[in-house]
Simulated assay, not measured.
Amino acid sequence: MQKLLLKLTVWIAFAGFLAGCGGTSDIGKERAQEIAFSDAGFTEEDVTRLHISRDKEDGEEVYDVEFTAEQTEYKYEIRSVDGDILSVDHEAVQNLEKADKDSFDHNGSFEDLQEQEKMPDAKQQTQETQTQDTDTAAQLTMEEAVKLVLDRVPGASKADLKIEMEYDDGRYKYEGDIIYEQREYEFEIDAATGDFLEWSEERR
């Protein structure tokens, strides 16, 4: 009987050892967030548009930590096993809080976007056509587009929003996203009518 109990005890201990060896350590989302904030020099109160997701990169489990602070968007890739920072990207973003509703130059943007879309040179068009296209291109101002989007996400602010005007498929539209409370909302708005062309929501 004693031998049986001894064997059983040894077997349980060995099984526990194997389970421990087979387990994979993980720093967790909160620790990944702390590492990114510490490296960038910010606290949670300083940032907006925060979202953290787990992914696999080159066979390694990683945490993608993204946030915006001081008009800069940060993207961190952190190894989930030991917390090593594998990559850091940062990019300046527009501050919508300071953007003036009339700061968007329709004429200049119209020509720039035409060139990007490889449309005919604006100089080859008549002045009447240019004026008509410009007037109908963006009846909706940037400020009005921002309000339409924020009205759909109660609690979100301009700090959580990224928006820009694009020319695509023969029309102007506002497109961008809101990241708020671990949800990402993507949208497209017809700049001539104010209608939403696309709206999607994803839980982060």
Rank of each mutant, 00 (worst) to 15 (best):
V47I: 15
F67S: 01
E111T: 13
R31C: 01
S25V: 09
D82N: 05
D84H: 10
V65H: 00
D121Q: 09
T68K: 07
E45T: 15
M119R: 14
T136C: 04
R79P: 00
D26M: 01
R79N: 10
G108M: 14
D100P: 01
N95S: 07
K123L: 12
Q33T: 12
G22V: 03
T136Q: 11
A122M: 13
D105C: 00
E111Y: 09
A36W: 03
A69G: 14
T136D: 13
D58S: 11
V81M: 05
H51P: 01
G22T: 04
R31E: 11
E60F: 02
E45A: 13
T24R: 08
A69Y: 07
H106E: 10
A40M: 09
F104C: 05
E97F: 08
E57Q: 12
D26Q: 01
Q114V: 06
E44M: 05
S25F: 05
N107Y: 13
I27C: 02
T72V: 15
A138G: 06
Q116H: 11
G28V: 02
E128H: 07
Q71F: 00
T68G: 04
Y74E: 01
R79M: 00
D58T: 01
E61V: 06
A69E: 05
T72W: 08
A137W: 07
E44I: 11
T136S: 12
E66V: 07
K29V: 09
A122E: 13
R49I: 03
D133E: 15
A92I: 09
L86V: 06
K75H: 12
R31P: 04
R54W: 02
Q132W: 05
K29Y: 07
E73V: 02
D102Q: 10
E117M: 14
K56N: 01
Q71E: 10
K101V: 09
E128R: 10
Q94L: 11
D46T: 04
A69D: 05
I85E: 05
Q116D: 15
D82L: 02
T129D: 10
Q125R: 09
L113S: 12
Q130G: 04
S109N: 12
D100V: 02
G108C: 08
L96R: 01
G59E: 07
A36T: 05
G83S: 06
D64A: 04
N107G: 07
V62E: 03
N95H: 03
E70H: 08
Q130K: 14
M119N: 15
F67R: 03
D102E: 15
H51Q: 08
I52V: 14
E66G: 10
E91C: 03
H90I: 01
D39Q: 12
F42C: 09
S109Y: 14
L86A: 02
A40D: 11
K118Q: 14
E45D: 15
A92V: 11
V62P: 01
D133H: 09
S53W: 01
F42M: 11
T43C: 00
Q127C: 03
Q33K: 14
E34H: 08
T134S: 07
T129M: 09
E60R: 11
F110N: 04
A32Y: 06
A36D: 06
D89S: 08
K29T: 09
D121P: 03
D133V: 10
D46V: 02
F67A: 02
K101C: 15
Q130F: 02
E128P: 06
D82G: 05
T129L: 11
T129Q: 15
E73I: 03
Q132R: 14
Q125W: 14
H90D: 13
A99P: 03
E60Y: 00
T136H: 08
S80T: 06
A138K: 04
